[in-house]
Simulated scan of single mutants.
Amino acid sequence: MTSVAVVTGASSGIGAATVRRLAAEGFHVLAAARRTDRLADLVEEVETSGGSATAVSCDVTSDESVARLAAAAAAAPGPVTLLVNNAGGARGLDPVETGAVGDWQWMYDVNVLGTLRVTQALLPALVSSGAGTIVVVSSTAGFTVYEGGGGYAAAKHAQTAVAGTLRLELCGRPVRVVEIDPGMVRTEEFSLVRFDGDADRADAVYAGVSEPLVADDVADCVAWCATRPQHVNVDRLVVRPLAQAAQHKVHRVG
Results as ranks from 00 to 15, higher is better:
V56F: 02
C221T: 09
S12N: 09
V234E: 11
A204T: 02
A24C: 07
A10R: 01
R117N: 05
R117V: 11
H251R: 10
T140C: 08
L116S: 04
V56L: 04
A153W: 14
E179M: 14
H231L: 13
Q120G: 04
P124H: 12
E179N: 13
V96G: 06
V234S: 10
G149D: 11
D217N: 15
A207F: 03
E169F: 09
L237C: 08
V234K: 07
V60W: 11
H251D: 08
G183S: 11
A90N: 12
V218H: 10
A75C: 00
S210T: 11
P95F: 14
N86P: 04
V238M: 05
V205A: 06
V239K: 11
R194D: 04
A202T: 11
L192Q: 03
I180T: 03
V218W: 00
S57E: 15
V193S: 07
P182N: 07
A243F: 04
E189Y: 01
T165S: 15
L213I: 07
E47D: 01
L213A: 09
R34N: 12
S138R: 03
G142E: 05
V136H: 10
D220R: 12
T160P: 02
T48K: 14
P95E: 02
A74C: 04
S138C: 03
I180M: 08
P241V: 05
S138A: 15
A70V: 02
S11D: 05
L122R: 03
A5F: 13
A16S: 11
A67Q: 09
A17K: 01
A155Y: 03
T8R: 07
H28T: 14
T54C: 03
D103L: 07
I134D: 02
D94A: 12
G50H: 04
S65M: 14
T98C: 04
L83D: 13
A154L: 08
A70K: 02
L42D: 01
G132A: 10
A31D: 05
F190Q: 12
A215K: 01
D181N: 15
C171H: 14
A10Y: 00
L122M: 01
F143G: 07
L168I: 12
Q244L: 10
A219L: 08
N86R: 13
V101Q: 13
T160Q: 11
N111P: 01
A32W: 00
S57D: 14
L170T: 11
D59I: 05
D235R: 11
L83I: 08
V250C: 08
P124E: 14
A246P: 00
G130H: 07
V232C: 06
A73H: 01
A67K: 12
V162Q: 07
I180Y: 09
V19E: 00
V29S: 07
K156V: 12
P95H: 06
T119N: 06
A75Y: 00
G26W: 08
A204C: 00
